[in-house]
Every structure is written in C-alpha cells, then in structure tokens.
Simulated assay, not measured.
Amino acid sequence: MKPVNFTFKCLLSLALMTLSPIAGNAQGAKDFQGQATYISKSSLDLGDWGARLSEEQKKQVKAQLKNRLEKTYTLTFNKTESFFKENDKLDAISGATDSWGKNFAAGDQYKNVKTNAQIQEQEFYGKRFLVKDSLQPISWKLGSETKQIGDYTCFKATASIPTNELTWYSFSWDKLRQNSSATAEGTQETASEETLQLTEVEAWYSPQIPVGHGPSEYWGLPGLILEVSAGDTTMLCSKLVLNPAERLEIKAPEKGKDITKTQYQATIVEKMKEFRSNRTGRSRG
C-alpha cells in the first residue's frame, strides 16, 4: 500500500492568492451555489525500469506524460448536487488532446448527496456509457487538526477506501491478472477479499462552506473538501467562486448506455482481454 504523498503541498501558495471568503449571508441562502477549480498533481514512480534510464531520459518520459500527471478540474455545486469535470488540456508535443489516456480517465461526473446517486459519462474506445450507481460509501474519521487554505479554516479527515472503488473507471494489467486468476480458480469473491487493496486518503474540508461535496469520488464531510491526497495524487482547490452573479447550471449526463460501475469494470476487462489476445495472435502469425 502506498502512503499518502505530500509532495505537492507547495500548491498551497497558489490557493492562498486565489481563494476568497464567502460573501454576505451566502451560507443561509436557499439557492446557494459555487464553483471550485482544482489542480491535480501525481508523482511518477518509474520502478525498476526507471533505474536503467539516465536522468535526461527520465526528464523526457516525465515531460511526455505531463498531461496525465498534472490536470485541472472544475466542480460546480449547490446544496445537494455537484458536477465535476476535467478541463481539456492540449498535449505539449502534438498539440492534440490526450485521446488515448481518456479511455481510462474519469468522465464528467454528477453527484447528488440527497438521493445518494452518482451518474458518470464514460467513453471507452468509441463507445459511450452512462454509469449509474450509488455514491461510494466513505467512513471518514474526523480529526481536530486544522490549517488555513486561503481564507478558510479547514479540518482534517482520513479514510481507508478500497483502491478498486476509487479507480473503477480505469484499467491496469494487474486487474486483468487478478481477474483471470480468480476466474480460473472459480473463487471470485474469495480472491477479491484476499487481494483487497486499500488507499489511505487524507482530506481537508471547511465547514465555512456548508456542503458535502468534493472532487472526484470524495464527498460526505461537513464542509466542502478543498484538498485531498490519495496514493500518489494530491488535488488542491486553487480558485473558489461562491454565489456568482450568473446562475450556474448543474445537469446530469444523459448520453450513453446505462450500466453500473461493476458492469463497466467487467466491460473494460473483457475488451482488454480481447485486445491482448489479438495482439498475441498477430505476433505469432
């Protein structure tokens, strides 16, 4: 299990310049709305393969993968609903969007904390899916430790969440190997329990913004989550606008084939099995 990574705490200086306090009596407003921008950064562990690279080669690899290691997102929210999406970023080398990476990236996400519903639009190799499911349950442990993020006093909360539940929209060959092994033994449930991996999550939320929302899969705290660290990734709110003059629209995605998270995972695994089989067949031919 990887420990929570704190490499990107320097991002706080950016937040201090751009976060602003709640204006007027916004907390009690019936139509309370807001929009938060998050900066996400991930560290890159090149492992044994990286040990064989020179420092210059490592820099080149990191530069090529920068779009997948550094991203920005927007969270639009009201009291009960939120809409989270990645902001498109052009590839520094080709000038095009990272279309391959989007096959395994999180799509536009709608959450409703009142109805416990999540709807997420996913596109996988040209096919569009509408993933409808319940919100990921999170057993937060609330702490007393505080810190300032911009003008907001934030409290610390921690949780241990099954890694697979946080990355249900993505794929790794490890997932495929585990799936194949469990299926071959005919002990899917037992194997899943034995190989369950947990991700340690640290979040900082502010009761000054009284909504239970947060970026990505995170939610359920007594205040907006302004920073969250999980595994090798940290997401930090760098800009926050509350009750803007122009009303914000929050609408759930509607296009795609209805499917659950579990069904979507199975679809990805089967497609990648097919991909691997076709590639192996060509190499033998």
Rank of each mutant, 00 (worst) to 15 (best):
Tyr152Leu: 02
Asn103Ser: 03
Asn67Phe: 01
Asn112Met: 00
Leu44Met: 13
Phe32Lys: 14
Ala23Gly: 10
Leu226Val: 01
Phe155Gly: 13
Arg276Lys: 13
Ala117Thr: 14
Gln118Val: 05
Lys58Asn: 02
Ser42Leu: 07
Gln188Asp: 15
Ser43Ile: 02
Ile93Phe: 14
Lys102Arg: 08
Ser134Gln: 08
Leu16Cys: 00
Leu142Ala: 04
Glu217Tyr: 05
Lys257Glu: 03
Tyr110Gly: 07
Ile161Lys: 10
Gly220Trp: 15
Leu90Arg: 10
Glu165His: 14
Gln109His: 10
Gln33Cys: 03
Ser172Met: 12
Pro3Leu: 06
Ala29Trp: 02
Gln35Arg: 03
Ser82Thr: 04
Gly50Arg: 14
Gly186Gln: 01
Leu16Arg: 09
Ala92Asp: 15
Lys111Ile: 10
Ala92Cys: 07
Leu221Met: 12
Lys58Phe: 01
Ala23Arg: 13
Glu270Gly: 00
Ala230Leu: 00
Phe6Ser: 11
Asn5His: 04
Lys114Glu: 10
Leu14Asn: 07
Tyr125Arg: 07
Ala266Lys: 09
Phe6Arg: 14
Lys62Cys: 12
Gln178Ser: 05
Lys239Glu: 02
Ser20Asp: 04
Gln265His: 09
Gln35Phe: 10
Ala15Met: 07
Phe8Arg: 07
Ala230Arg: 00
Phe275Met: 08
Trp49Ser: 07
Asn179Arg: 14
Leu224Gly: 02
Ala23Lys: 01
